[in-house]
């Protein structure tokens, strides 16, 4: 076992426990008379566990950094680990600051589990740091990209609640949350934040590409995919302003945009030969 693995496993255990406790708490709170007090005593524990997961991932990332000599920017194992950290960080802040949407955590955490399970299945092989990655724009590009993905995930969590409420057996789980019309606004608000950070990600990426490969844009697989993602988000925002899009269709659109972003991040660089990976 390599140095970062014990930290990673414990972090994943913390996220898993947070998921279980959140689901149990929400299931228990689903009944009760209208107007009765809702038991939210489990929420600090969930917040504590997510935060613990984040700190443990910082340890895992640090251990790996020391072991292989560079940051988590190159292979899938380290990219997933780093995303689990940043998604958890944004989730914990949102969970802390916006109590009204806390139950959405039972949608968000399982979505993060896709990354969690994936990273646990990968070998923690050391990666080689390409010469063009010493550029400071890498930090900006990756940093703002993390916020883009995290805000899309938050939007998707809320959109997920809107959709799960359509299933009559699951609707009571979220009855302490605001009505769909409010959730719709909250979800899109996260997507608007995501748009800002995605725009910054494209700009920082272009500056880096100009330094690294002598061109700011060349429609490589990753560039095209993130541009389409940006365009899709822009189109969805305009469509929502122009047409009376039913709330649940809007929610599906948000999930679609998130899935697209997910594929861009974790699919394109590893399945396309000519993505950034190919030209480093």
């Amino acid at each position: 076992m390599v140095a970062e693995q014990p930290w990673l496993y414990t972090a994943m255990a913390a996220y898993a426990l947070a998921t279980v406790i959140a689901i149990r708490g929400i299931v228990r709170a689903r009944g009760g008379a209208v107007g009765a007090a809702v038991n939210r005593s489990y929420e600090p524990l969930v917040l504590g566990l997510i935060s613990a997961g984040v700190i443990l991932l910082v340890m895992a990332l640090t251990e790996r950094w020391i072991r292989i000599g560079h940051g988590p920017f190159v292979n899938l194992f380290e990219l997933l680990m780093s995303q689990l950290f940043s998604l958890g960080l944004v989730l914990s802040v949102v969970y802390w600051r916006l109590p009204v949407i806390r139950p959405a955590v039972i949608v968000v955490l399982p979505m993060m589990w896709v990354l969690g399970i994936w990273v646990l299945l990968l070998e923690p092989t050391a990666s080689a740091f390409p010469p063009t990655y010493y550029n400071k724009w890498l930090w900006v590009h990756v940093g703002v990209g993390k916020f883009f993905l995290a805000f899309s995930l938050m939007g998707s969590g809320v959109a997920g609640v809107i959709l799960l409420r359509k299933i009559s057996r699951l609707a009571p789980l979220f009855r302490h949350m605001p009505p769909d019309s409010v959730l719709d606004h909250v979800a899109w608000r996260f997507m608007l934040l995501a748009l800002i950070f995605e725009s910054l990600m494209l700009i920082a990426g272009a500056v880096w590409a100009q330094d690294a490969w002598g061109r700011y844009w060349a429609w490589d697989a990753l560039e095209t995919s993130s541009f389409l993602n940006w365009l899709l988000l822009g189109a969805a925002i305009h469509a929502r302003l122009t047409y009376r899009i039913p709330i649940h269709i809007g929610a599906i659109a948000i999930l679609g945009i998130f899935v697209f972003a997910f594929m861009t991040y974790f699919g394109t660089p590893f399945f396309s030969e000519a993505a950034h990976k190919g030209v480093i």
Binding site: W219, D220, A221, T224, F227, L228, L232, A235
Partner: peptide, 13 residues
Amino acid sequence: MALLGVGAALSYD
């Protein structure tokens, strides 16, 4: 925008 999306997709890679 949809047309631009198609154009971008055709320029993929």
